[in-house]
Design a protein around this nucleic acid. Structure first.
Lengths: 340, 340
DNA sequence: GGGGGGCTGGACAACGTTGTCATCTGTGGT
DNA sequence: ACCACAGATGACAACGTTGTCCAGCCCCCC
């Protein structure tokens, strides 16, 4: 546990050559004669020499990692996103450090500061709602791509889902089945995404000339248990909804549970975000599939372009905003007609 | 994007002091007079100086990150585990790099090699089945804690669930309800965990004097779709099982789906590993809860001890093996009595 | 046989930081 | 008025690596 790792010096001394020669062998430079190369390689293997990336990066002036800052890796959405970031980054030989914010602005900031200290090459960030002017300090040092949440400050590359449009379509899907009283569950002012989805909900109702009933879109239940209670409340009234739109997959779990408890298979449901077993439930749950894997892959590709990995492309240029499509997966629950 | 980040030199020049003084201010050394400290701090803030961890670590001879190497971060089990590693590591000021193996031995090895190059302080590893002698090279440089999978080579700290014992108990639970034909689904020779669980299954059957029917434990279906097909096959026979034990949560999703399709609410089910909506299904699914969060937390704590963070504790000592308890959560599906 | 050119190998500096040690200033004791 | 001393500040080396530059060496050609 306490052995010092061998360095170029150790290998050089053992092989009887200079450190530069060892460096050349390790880096596959052509400037070394074959037999010497073989000899050095032999010593490298024997001593289990592993290059020190820290020193390398210090010399190079830039690290070999990219950072991912998200709410929590325990959320399947961010896990899938991060997984995609990793595979994409790995293709270019970059490692991934991640940090979670817990959706707390101060933690976001301190995590990003840690990343900066680590000399990350670039950053993929799912921003917490709040003031992000401090980010400007860092963007001079490394590119930042925002994901999932559109962001009040312009000038950053962004990869998002068309929350508003996709929700509008989803609500339209329900309206087409005759629903007029559609609840919006999973609303949480803290998340710009659910706010955008609420906007889409309003869009669709307005377009159909249906007045908005605030009681159908209660506040503050992005999480499973709160959503569950909300559904109990909504369906406990005489004038309850005939359809529910759940604004995020965590909330959907609660919604499904409540509907099940209440034995209400007559209530239509569309979930924003897919979840395990959605296809298994009775009725199977119709979802807007937001494809976190794709978001992560696209964001990382954009980051790599800014880093100049994609040769020939501009590494500087105006910020781009990519909108990843979100498909409606009709499984049954969203196709329930309104009772006559 | 291309501004050079300010260094101690820049700050020193701007403040008209030596780099050492700036270093002292940044590191909160007491050896600086108050007014000078204030002045320097001012310049630090103005220039947005951020210390370079790479250089710091190079000087210190050891990095400030710990590595996590797992199958894939997209698996909820590993996501939860990694999340726990992060929170625990963060308390000691350590960052987390992760790498996924895809359960491919070569990728495991190359990921660990990357980690070594990055001078990770320590490693949490969910090992892929295979020869791990190469690990010995690295353990000289940093401590390694194995998680989830017991491992053929001794000498490493390990944090696992008592797969065999927990499964034995789970099968006992079913036997107590009168079941005699219990299927084992989700078996996969590649995973030592499911092999151990199979052993536990055999243990319980032997203890009850029930002959093992190989047809009830078919091979090769750790994944959702394969498990689904296996259940269809098992229940398609005259002499099918009256209870199913599903050896991992991914398989459980397939099992649940198949049972649902077949409308077999009479078949008892216990799942190794909890999953979302398990409590919602009808009947709700009885699970062995393996608590990945706890595994990650315990593993990281052990790692920190080896690193000497937990002052006063031995940082060297014999390898320890921690067995995290797995509780049976009775929800209904596991309590279905055998039909008379 | 001597000089030039191409190739191989090495010495040295630098990346940004911190540890070691030296220097400098001011204070108090005698 | 001098010395000792403590506290503040700075010069320098070193961590492990790579880029730059230079010194050999061999071979070939004149």
């Amino acid at each position: 546990m306490n052995d010092r790792r061998p360095t170029l010096h150790d290998v050089a001394a053992e092989a009887g050559v200079s450190i530069k020669t060892v460096s050349r062998v390790v880096n596959g430079s052509e400037q070394v004669s074959p037999d010497l190369r073989l000899h050095v390689q032999d010593v490298v293997d024997r001593l289990n020499y592993v290059p020190n990336t820290l020193a390398r990066s210090l010399k190079a002036g830039t690290g070999d990692t990219i950072g991912v800052v998200i709410d929590t890796i325990a959320d399947p959405f961010f896990a899938a996103l991060t997984s995609a970031v990793e595979s994409t980054a790995l293709e270019s030989g970059l490692n991934v450090v991640f940090g979670s914010t817990g959706y707390v602005p101060e933690r976001e900031r301190s995590q990003i500061e840690r990343m900066a200290m680590q000399q990350v090459r670039g950053l993929v960030l799912a921003p917490v709602l709040g003031n992000h002017e401090y980010l400007a300090r860092f963007r001079g040092s490394f590119p930042i791509v925002l994901v999932d949440r559109s962001f009040e400050i312009d000038g950053y590359d962004t990869v998002v889902v068309d929350d508003r449009g996709a929700t509008r379509d989803a609500i339209g899907h329900l309206l087409a089945r005759g629903h007029r009283r559609i609840a919006f569950v999973g609303r949480d002012e803290r998340f710009p995404t659910t706010s955008d989805r609420l906007d889409g909900y309003h869009d669709a109702l307005h377009a159909a000339g249906i007045p908005v009933d605030p009681l159908l879109a209660p506040r503050g239940q992005a999480e499973e248990d709160a959503a569950e209670r909300a559904v109990h409340d909504l369906l406990g009234t005489d004038d309850g909804p005939t359809a529910i739109f759940s604004a995020n997959p965590r909330a959907s779990l609660g919604v499904v549970h409540a509907l099940h408890e209440l034995r209400r298979t007559d209530v239509a449901l569309v979930s924003f975000g897919d979840f395990p077993l959605a296809r298994t439930l009775e009725p199977a749950v119709t979802c807007v599939d937001q494809d976190p894997h794709r978001i992560g892959a696209v964001a990382t590709t954009q980051l790599l372009r800014r880093l100049g990995f994609d040769e020939g492309r501009d590494r500087i240029g105006p910020a781009e905003r990519v909108v990843v499509p979100a498909a409606l997966i009709a499984r049954g629950s969203g196709e329930i007609e309104v009772p006559r």
